[in-house]
C-alpha cells in the first residue's frame, strides 16, 4: 500500500490489441481483483485504473483514449510512473458457478477475477466482448487459466456476432450459474444487471466515475441518491446497492460536478 505517490519504473510493456497496452511496473503490490490504483503520468494527469495484474510486477491495462493515455502508450521501458493505492472495494466471490461479462478494456479487472476464482476452485465462464477480433482482450490468458470462454464481436470477425448481453441472455437460459460480475461500458452493465436480475442472479458491477482524490474526500465520484463514493465504497457495487442509484445507466458527472446524461 502506498499512501503518498510512489514513483516506479516501467518494467515491461505488452501490446495487447491495436489500442490497448499492459504496463507492468517494478512494484510488488498485493491487491484483490477489482481494486484500482491512481496512476500518475508525470506532467500529464493522474487516472484511476483497474489492476489487471495484482502482486509482483503489478500491471494495468490501458486503452489509448485521450492525451494522458496517449502519452502513456508512447512511454518506454524504464520510464517513470507514480502509483497511489491499491484502493477500493474488491469483487467478492461467494458463488460456485460464476459468469463474468467484460466489454472492451473492461476485461482489465475481470481477468484477475477469473484467475482468482479458478484458484479458489470455482467454475467461471467469461463472456469477452469487443468491436472486432483484433480488439479482444485476454482471450489466451483466460484460456490458459482454465476459464470457459464465450467471445462476441460487433462485426462477427470472431465468436458470436452480437453484443455480450445477447450472449449472456442465451447462456443464463441454461440456468447453471449462481453469481454474475461485469465491467465495461455503463449501458452494457445496465443491461447485464437487468438480465441477471431476471434470472435471479446476484451481480457485482465495476462502476466508473470521474475521480479526483481516490481516498473518499473530494466527493467527485459520489452516486445519487445515497451519496456512496465510487472510489471508496466502490468501485464494485452489488445489485442491491445499484438498484438504489438514480444515476446508474442515466447520467455521470464531469470534473466540475455537472450532470452529463449518457
Amino acid at each position: 500500500m502506498t499512501d503518498g505517490v510512489y514513483t516506479v519504473k516501467i518494467k515491461d510493456i505488452v501490446k495487447e490489441t491495436k489500442n490497448i497496452k499492459t504496463f507492468r511496473l517494478d512494484l510488488d503490490l498485493p491487491a484483490l481483483p477489482g481494486q484500482y490504483i491512481m496512476l500518475w503520468v508525470p506532467g500529464y494527469d493522474e487516472k484511476p485504473l483497474s489492476i489487471s495484474y495484482p502482486g509482483r510486477d503489478m500491471g494495468v491495462t490501458v486503452l489509448r483514449k485521450g492525451a494522458t493515455t496517449a502519452r502513456l502508450h508512447d512511454m518506454k521501458r524504464g520510464d517513470i510512473l507514480g502509483v497511489r493505492g491499491p484502493f477500493g472495494r474488491a469483487f467478492k466471490i461467494t458463488g460456485e458457478r460464476l459468469i463474468a461479462v467484460g466489454g472492451g478494456v473492461g476485461m482489465a479487472p475481470i481477468a484477475p477475477l477469473a484467475e482468482k476464482a479458478i484458484e479458489m476452485g470455482r467454475e467461471i465462464t467469461v463472456i469477452i466482448g469487443a468491436v472486432t477480433k483484433s480488439e479482444l482482450l485476454f482471450v489466451d490468458r483466460l484460456e490458459r487459466a482454465g476459464a470457459e470462454i464465450i467471445i462476441t464481436t460487433d462485426d462477427g470477425t470472431c465468436g458470436m456476432k452480437c453484443f455480450t448481453t445477447h450472449a449472456l441472455e442465451k447462456e443464463l437460459e441454461k440456468g447453471r450459474y449462481d453469481e454474475c460480475f461485469t465491467c465495461g461500458p455503463e449501458i452494457m452493465m445496465y443491461k447485464v444487471l437487468e438480465i441477471a436480475k431476471r434470472h435471479g442472479l446476484p451481480t457485482q458491477v465495476s462502476m466508473e466515475r470521474y475521480f479526483k482524490c481516490g481516498i473518499g474526500i473530494c466527493g467527485a465520484c459520489v452516486m445519487d441518491d445515497g451519496g456512496l463514493r465510487v472510489c471508496k465504497e466502490g468501485p464494485n457495487f452489488r445489485d442491491v446497492e445499484i438498484e438504489k442509484f438514480k444515476d446508474f445507466g442515466k447520467y455521470t458527472r464531469d470534473a466540475s460536478g455537472k450532470k452529463v446524461y449518457w
Binding site: 491512481m38 493522474e46 470534473a255 450532470k259
Partner: peptide
C-alpha cells in the same frame, strides 16, 4: 472543471490539494 489530477495527495502529517475551484 478545475485543475488536472493529481489534485489531492497525502504527505507526512497532512494532505496537499489543488482542485482549482471546480464546481458545477
Amino acid at each position: 472543471e478545475g485543475y488536472k489530477n493529481p489534485t489531492v495527495i497525502k504527505i507526512e502529517q497532512g494532505y496537499l490539494n489543488a482542485i482549482g475551484l471546480a464546481n458545477p
